[in-house]
Design a protein around this nucleic acid. Structure first.
Length: 204
DNA sequence: TACTAGATCGGCT
DNA sequence: GCCGATCTAGTAG
């Protein structure tokens, strides 16, 4: 039974809290992307928190620059960055203005518009089992599947282009907490959260 | 299944 | 110049 109800969009206040608190609460929520008349959606299954006030792995740790300025706004907007010369990653900005916090969306479970996501990722709509598992199980893959790029940086998440929809809370026993992946600084912070046994989590 | 290298480029030193 | 909040294809076991 699918609970995706566009009337249950997460309000601005949801995002104005501390990054690691928002991160845990984001698990299970629906991430919705509208492209024209088509809606694409995935259930969030893996996230990481970042806080530039002391966290050296956060882009905002070095202070405000052209690249990271979006992340210094009040929570409730999207921070999209380009990395490794070819990938985009998307984050939900959290906390208050000038705090420099965000939650990286690392993996989602495809829910709606799967064929369109498949075309964005693999140029075809019929996928093998392996391709399906690789549709949105990583931050760069999500942005490719949902066609999120530079232009989407700063998008207001209370608008109707990209937004998050509430869903039943994930039971705490189903939430696994670990250190973050793919970084070299502040590696000991326990700020990665994912849903236990979900097929689309990027790494066990 | 596990590890490694290559792709590719914007941001910052 | 160096390196990154990554992904993929390749090789070896």
């Amino acid at each position: 039974m699918l609970h995706l109800d566009f009337n249950k969009k997460l309000p601005k206040e949801f995002y104005l809290r501390y990054t690691s608190d928002v991160a845990g609460d984001l698990l299970g929520k629906y991430f919705v992307r509208r492209i024209g008349k088509n809606f694409l959606a995935g259930k969030i299954v893996e996230v990481e928190a970042y806080d530039g006030s002391f966290d050296e792995a956060a882009h905002t740790f070095i202070g405000k620059t052209k690249r990271n300025e979006v992340m210094f706004n009040d929570g409730g907007i999207l921070y999209v960055y380009f990395t490794y010369g070819m990938h985009f990653c998307c984050n939900v900005v959290t906390g208050k203005k000038d705090e420099g916090q965000a939650v990286l969306i690392r993996a989602v479970e495809p829910i709606l518009g799967v064929e369109i996501m498949a075309k964005h990722r693999f140029g075809k709509s019929n996928l093998t089992q392996n391709e399906f598992r690789n549709l949105t199980n990583g931050p760069g893959k999500i942005c490719q599947a949902l066609r999120i790029r530079r232009k989407e940086n700063g998008t207001d998440l209370t608008g109707d282009e990209i937004f998050l929809v509430d869903n039943n809370k994930i039971h705490s026993k189903k939430i696994i907490t670990t250190t973050r992946i793919g970084i070299k600084k502040s590696v000991d912070l326990p700020w990665r959260f994912y849903i236990k046994d979900n097929l689309f989590v990027s790494q066990k």
